[in-house]
């Protein structure tokens, strides 16, 4: 496990910088406001201990919240999906289970597996995030629509990043 630490630290920092410098600066519309940083949680190795997933999600959320002035909002949403990730991994597991030494990436798991996996977790994250933001069901239709379009946008950028990051 420990040998992955520098690599994942690098991914951690890259995800934060991309979110802060590019995606937070986009400001095109409420409907196109992707939470690219969830990529870090998606990419964690299959055998990552639960406590480590939760703690690293918490740290990631805190930092993102600091940049967005949204104390606790992104933290709550990202910890939520870090908690559900093992269950989702179970749900979408291939028939023969995960091969030891494999990672949740397109290159190793295939496109359709990765799309299914990331779409479920990103949708959970976005719906949690935007309902925490709205904190009420006043504009429930609008909130649902915002969460939906942002789920698509985030998934799109996450998938694109796969082709750029792990080309080799």
């Amino acid at each position: 496990m420990i040998k992955y630490l520098p690599k994942y630290l690098l991914i951690f920092i890259t995800c934060i910088l991309l979110q802060v410098v590019i995606f937070n600066e986009m400001q095109i519309s409420r409907f196109l406001n992707p939470s690219f940083y969830v990529l870090f949680i998606l990419l964690l190795p299959f055998e990552t201990p639960k406590w480590l997933q939760l703690i690293s999600a918490f740290a990631l959320g805190l930092i993102i919240d600091a940049f967005m002035n949204t104390a606790g909002m992104n933290t709550a949403a990202i910890v939520f999906i870090a908690f559900l990730r093992p269950a989702v991994l179970n749900l979408v597991s291939p028939r023969e289970g995960y091969e030891p030494g494999s990672f949740p990436r397109i290159a190793q798991m295939g496109f359709s597996w990765f799309l299914k996996y990331s779409l479920i977790l990103i949708a959970l994250h976005q719906f949690a995030l935007f309902f925490i933001e709205a904190m009420s069901f006043n504009f429930v239709g609008l909130t649902l629509l915002v969460a939906l379009t942002n789920t698509i946008a985030t998934t799109f950028f996450v998938i694109v990043s796969q082709f750029i990051m792990f080309k080799r």
Partner: peptide, 27 residues
């Protein structure tokens, strides 16, 4: 652990709404 971390996150969220001074991490 999950419940504890969520509790902390929501604590921050509500504190920001009520007493902005209490927020230690902000832009």
């Amino acid at each position: 652990l999950f419940l504890l971390l969520e509790f902390l996150a929501f604590l921050m969220l509500f504190q920001q709404n009520h007493y902005h001074n209490a927020v230690f991490l902000n832009s």
